[in-house]
Write a protein that binds this DNA or RNA. Structure first.
Lengths: 246, 246
DNA sequence: CGATGGATATCGCAC
DNA sequence: GTGCGATGTCCATCG
């Protein structure tokens, strides 16, 4: 045991035996602490898909919200995981310390079996601050509502997130002639999928509105791929280049 | 200091002062170790977007491949991160221990400034085992190639990933009458986007092939949403229900 | 390097 | 719960 044991804010065990690891992790799960376990382990997952992972050194993170993450030394994404809301369990089986995380609807199960536990750490964590993020699609929308001429001189926004049978349109409005305008926003370079999305909005509005009504579709993004540009031309849609704020 | 210090496989510091934390993390970065730091910190990010995060208790993971992750007590995704390939730096500024991670193309920068470091851990990690995953789209494709009648009696696959101007078709073949068949596979319930994808394949092949050639489009998936079903009917495409193996 | 599409995507919101 | 679209998506693959 280390001096950390007397500290409620955090605790650490170095190379605990399986039973000691099970006790510490089980207690931390019950306490609602954040837990990291590093050691040599195998991983099995079964649920939406299924996978097995042979022995290797990995970092396991258990969060009080029921999230489980298994990280190797590479990659931003965990090699295995469970989403928030799962139930974690610390068990002993065949003399091994194991972490089992389950959920239902859909049924999913993650089992991490440790051959050797290098370290168990627990943390009592408080974090009330929300992330303030800028440079998103909503920012782009606000810039256009502040200055509709960015789309086209005389453009008048009438609604945001206007519902159509094909889904909600980002910005709905009229051009200077009174023709209906549909605007699809993308915060980064767009491919063919965005053109298909805009096209569906225009097509369904074509049916919904007056038969002789002209409907113009605008795609607003920093840039388009060559294939997407071709699809735009083919479908008679327009493109406006608008990048993130400097 | 704990007994772990003499062990090259892992090391831990409890509540180090900023300078000690900087030394230990800087050395571990240079050594190519995996690092976890837990403590009270603020986070700033600037790059593809920008964000700030006020003080709170968070777990920071630095990987030898240049990945950085900042995890709070909630959520599966890190609240902030840097992708693999970044350069990490451990610095002292205003008496605080800071972790700075940068990359170029695009320029991105992540700064984690610690008011209080609860724990620093380092691990020498090797993991050469690959993940074996089943229940994927490739599994579904193999099942159909093994038994093409799953799509339709008499279906004959001729190619996989056949290129078209609209992208690669999952399975390309002929029905019993010799008509061209395009099959789009999805491993789970599909929405309108998959119908758009299949529709583009059929449309472009319609132009590419003989004008009088009949082209049939099949969407193979466990199920479809109501809107997607409508789009399929509208575009004259067919649906085959085929779920993951039990 | 960019383009393309899959993913146990995750996440948030509307219904 | 399902449906739908955004994401600093990440990631592998291909040209």
């Amino acid at each position: 045991m280390t001096s950390a044991d007397g500290d409620s804010a955090s605790g650490v065990l170095h190379r605990p035996d399986p039973e000691t690891a099970r006790e510490r992790v089980g207690a931390a799960i019950d306490r609602g602490a954040m837990i990291t376990v590093f050691g040599r382990c195998t991983v099995e997952y079964e649920g939406r898909a299924a996978s097995t992972l042979g022995p290797g050194d990995r970092l396991v993170v258990l969060k009080p919200d029921g999230t489980a993450l298994v990280h190797t030394d590479e990659g931003q994404k965990p090699v295995n995981w469970q989403p928030p809301g799962c139930t974690h369990e610390a068990t002993l089986a065949d003399g091994e310390f194991r972490i089992v995380s389950r959920r239902t609807a859909p049924d999913e199960r993650l089992v991490v079996a440790f051959e050797q536990v290098e370290q168990v750490s627990t943390f009592d964590v408080t974090d009330r601050h929300d992330l303030a993020l800028t440079g998103t699609e909503e920012d782009l929308r606000q810039r256009i509502l502040d200055d509709p001429d960015l789309v086209e001189a005389g453009f008048r926004p009438l609604a945001i997130e206007r519902e159509t049978p094909a889904g909600a349109v980002d910005i709905y409005g009229e051009d200077r002639e009174g023709a209906t305008v549909v605007v699809e926003l993308k915060r980064k370079r767009v491919g063919p999928d965005a053109v298909g999305q805009l096209s569906r909005y225009v097509e369904t509005l074509d049916r919904e509105l007056h038969a002789d009504a002209e409907i113009r579709g605008f795609l607003v993004a920093p840039s388009v791929t060559e294939r997407a540009r071709g699809l735009l031309a083919e479908k008679g849609l327009e493109f406006v280049s608008l990048g993130p704020p400097e």
